[in-house]
Amino acid sequence: MDNIAGQKSGLMWAVHLSVLALVLLWLFPTVGLFVSSFRTADQIATTGWWKALTAAEQNLLIRAADPDDEGVQQQVDGVWTISGNLFEEDGRPPATLSVWGTSSREIDAYTAGETADLGDGEQITVEANGDYVLTAQEQMSGRGQRVFLTAVIAPEFTLENYQNMLFDPKNVDGMSRAFFNTLTVTIPATVIPILIAAFAAYALAWMEFPGRALLIAAVVALLVVPLQLALIPLLKFHNGIGIGKGYMGVWLAHTGFGLPLAIYLLRNYMVGLPRDIIENAKVDGASDFQIFTKIVLPLSFPALASFAIFQFLWTWNDLLVAKVFLIDATGRTSVMTNQIVELLGTRGGNWEILATAAFVSIAVPLLVFFVMQRYLVRGLLAGSVKGG
């Protein structure tokens, strides 16, 4: 008994550690994406999200005030002077400057408080807090003086990324359209395979007919067929019957790829339902359709919900199937995953916008998962221990 108890205890620890590892693998990138969506571009480019709460050293390029702006230049004792604070003029919070320079090749040529000779009688002095004084013997013109500096920047969080993503006319039209396109793809692609799989699972679980075992074996075999193997033949078939590059084509594609798992999961669950209930209903004269709709379906709700979660998350986050069966030249049917790819192509350096767009795209799947996770656990556990 001690051995058995010890084996159970060891197995329990292994299960707990495995679950913890899976939770952390899922949690870290999600939290990182969420934190990055509130950080500035400089912070994202300089440090990882796990250092978001600590000050970080950054290399910055900031221009002094433009000499041509009204009231910027002042003549003091015959010397033209421009003064200000580099961080304030660049819209940054207060920071501490260590080294600076006037050329990209020597960004550490001077320390805080030193004066740089710019030639033609111009000089600039930069202090540790970002205050600067630019002087010249003659009135200055043109753009403001460039200053390359290394400074310790305090942590900064902003809602500007979400404002740009959700309210900027350049982004809002594409993202909002992609959001509703994704819903148009995901909801039917989740409901249709559940309806078909529920009927098929009941037949394979409780109806006797020739070839049932072969059909069950075929369903299990289809679980291991790679998705990529069927893309080209299926696309040619869709084009041949006139449903390629449209919602109907992508709905049927997701239905076909999701049916094997749905039938397998629901069949295993339905087989474990109490046989007495089914037999008593048949004795009372109930037809198979009545048994299916009034007894089996209500009792199978956990399994139905668990597959619905899987299918919803897969279709919502899908890019490959949407690229093959849906995308048109105008982009009017573009889904969110493809819209983010397009955003990456046009604004590849704006990682803060990309992080925000990615987190917006996973908000709905996260909501669905947390709302229905109890059904997911019940359905998967029941389907795994019951069978026949």
Rank of each mutant, 00 (worst) to 15 (best):
A308P: 01
F307E: 00
F359G: 09
L354V: 06
V324I: 14
A363P: 03
G348R: 07
F310T: 08
Q339T: 08
W316K: 05
T330I: 10
L366N: 03
L343P: 03
V364C: 03
A308D: 01
A357C: 11
W351Q: 13
A329W: 04
F325N: 14
A308T: 00
L304A: 01
F369T: 00
G331C: 04
G349S: 14
T315D: 05
Q339L: 08
L354N: 02
T333Q: 12
F301Y: 10
F301H: 05
L326V: 11
V335I: 15
V341M: 13
V371D: 04
Q339N: 07
V364P: 05
V321N: 12
G345E: 11
N338K: 10
Q339V: 04
A308C: 01
I327K: 11
W351A: 14
T330M: 04
I362A: 05
A355Q: 11
S334N: 09
N317K: 05
M372I: 00
W351K: 12
W316S: 07
L344C: 06
A305V: 13
V364W: 01
N317D: 11
D328N: 15
S306E: 01
I353C: 02
W314L: 12
W316Q: 06
Q339W: 11
K323H: 12
Q339G: 03
Q339D: 07
V335C: 09
I327Y: 13
K323T: 11
R332N: 14
V341N: 13
D328F: 01
F307V: 02
A322I: 08
G348E: 10
F312K: 04
L367F: 05
L320K: 10
W314I: 09
W351Y: 14
T337Q: 13
A329R: 13
F312R: 02
A358N: 10
T330A: 15
L343R: 03
A355I: 01
L344M: 13
A357P: 09
F310A: 12
I327M: 15
F359P: 07
L344R: 09
P302T: 07
F325D: 07
I327E: 15
F307P: 00
F359V: 09
G345F: 08
A303K: 00
T356F: 09
A322R: 09
G345V: 03
E342R: 08
G349L: 13
V360Y: 15
N338L: 15
F301S: 08
L326I: 10
A358K: 07
L354Q: 04
L366D: 10
N317G: 15
A308S: 02
G331F: 01
L366F: 13
L326R: 06
K323R: 11
T346S: 15
L354R: 05
I362C: 07
S334E: 14
G331M: 02
D318C: 06
A322E: 14
I340F: 03
F310L: 14
Q339F: 07
L319A: 12
L367W: 01
D318K: 06
L326P: 12
S334I: 03
L304H: 01
L354S: 03
